[in-house]
Design a protein around this nucleic acid. Structure first.
Length: 123
RNA sequence: UGGGUUGAAUAGAUAGUCGCGUCUUGAUCGGAAUUUACCAGUGAGAUGAGGAAAGUCUGGACUCCGUAGGGCAGGAUGCUCGGUAAACCCAAGGAGCGGUGACACUAUGGAAAGUGUAACAGAAAGUAGACUACAACAAUAAGGCGAUUUGUGGAACUAUGUAAACCUCAUCUGGAACAAGGUAAAUAGCGGACAAUGUAGAUGUGCCUGUCUCAUCCCCAGGUAACCGCUUGAGAUGGACGGUAACAUCCAUUCCAGAUGAAUGAUCAUCAUAUACAGAAUCCGGCUUAUUCUUAACUCAAGUC
RNA sequence: GCCCCCGUCGUCUAGCCUGGCCAAGGACACCGCCCUUUCACGGCGGCGACACGAGUUCAAAUCUCGUCGGGGGUA
């Protein structure tokens, strides 16, 4: 994951929280917002409520690794913020990937799901 | 065999594939451009968390501020002697106390410098009545060391606990804490307060004496996270030698994370089945706490010979 | 990263500095009874806490140390 594909600034996160679409399940919350860079950018948030630094780092790594696998299937031009929730620190990698894929499916940002997803969003 | 005490050591290993941080290096296109340098991507190689990285409880180093010098206050430590850069650390010995024992624990000077305080119980509670012998009298319990009456003789200032109560004695002690601090770039100032040689202000830094300045200070507004500090160090490993030990000296070898929205993960195979506590953020010495596996010495109990 | 502060009934607090009278007080809440046709108000009674573990002391909510938890500050 290269530098221009990370979200870093505090205002970038705040913009995603306020203007983005929100989807969640038991393990993660994601905020999805269209951007104008024609790039896919990822931000990760894991709060102190999740656990100590080992747990938090593990969650971040799981998200990063899963996203690496999934990114080829996702359409470019979105900012995505993933928030880890407490149960996520007990997941294995494959489960993380499934959970994230489920959320991306909901958000309808996979390649080829655009038509269907657009309608879904408007509803 | 079971329990206990103390110490030592380990923190999965090997191999493959994909992915990430840093460093070195090669080539090439893109930005930029007279060229180099610079920026971004890319190939190869090297390297990449801990014994506690944690808690932030301590001792220092680096850095800045302050500082002629001194006094007072405040704070810290508290048997003796050594080790160390230093220490609320470590080692050895003494004393006290706990334990059947191995062993462990101790902020371990001073109560005859002074002050305070001693609940409940008890008729009465501490600076005098309390020492001793004999005799007399009706006298016990509670209570924390200590208990009272009378007569005679003797003795002659003896006198509880508490100083992790105030205190006293000895030794030590400036403040901040890498978000310290430095370099470069960018930028915009406006308003207010206050004075005449003893006032005012500063010195963000306990107070005073003192010192310094004679223009500064305060408020509001604006602007910025680029680089350095940043890892070669009281370093690590091995050996020799001195010392009861902590530790010291000498020699040889070696370079072992350096991020900044913050790097270690995924998958598979074998060893045998498999990993607890837990993630560097300026750097070291210690303490405390969390926790996995192995092992040694000693001790207690029971049984067998 | 660095530096501080705070933990007392269900909730908000007093007591801590200066140890004993603390079997820890008060308010609201909760429970029961009385009052009322009933509810509310009012009256009476009850329930209920010193974060945890050591140490000092005859005696600790209070003093000291260590853990645990919570909160704050910091260009």
């Amino acid at each position: 994951m290269q530098d221009p594909e990370k979200l870093k600034k505090s205002w970038e996160f705040r913009r995603a929280y306020q203007k983005g679409n929100k989807y969640w399940n038991r393990y993660f919350v994601i905020y999805v917002l269209r951007n104008h860079f024609n790039r896919l950018r990822l931000g990760i948030t894991v709060s102190k409520k999740v656990g100590k630094s080992v747990q938090r780092n593990r969650v971040k790594r799981l998200i990063r690794e899963s996203f690496r696998e999934l990114r080829t299937q996702v359409e470019v031009g979105y900012d995505i913020v993933v928030v880890g929730r407490t149960p996520a620190c007990r997941l294995a990698c494959q489960e993380t990937q499934n959970a994230l894929a489920q959320l991306f499916q909901k958000a309808a940002i996979f390649n080829g799901s655009r038509q269907r997803g657009g309608n879904w969003n408007e509803n």
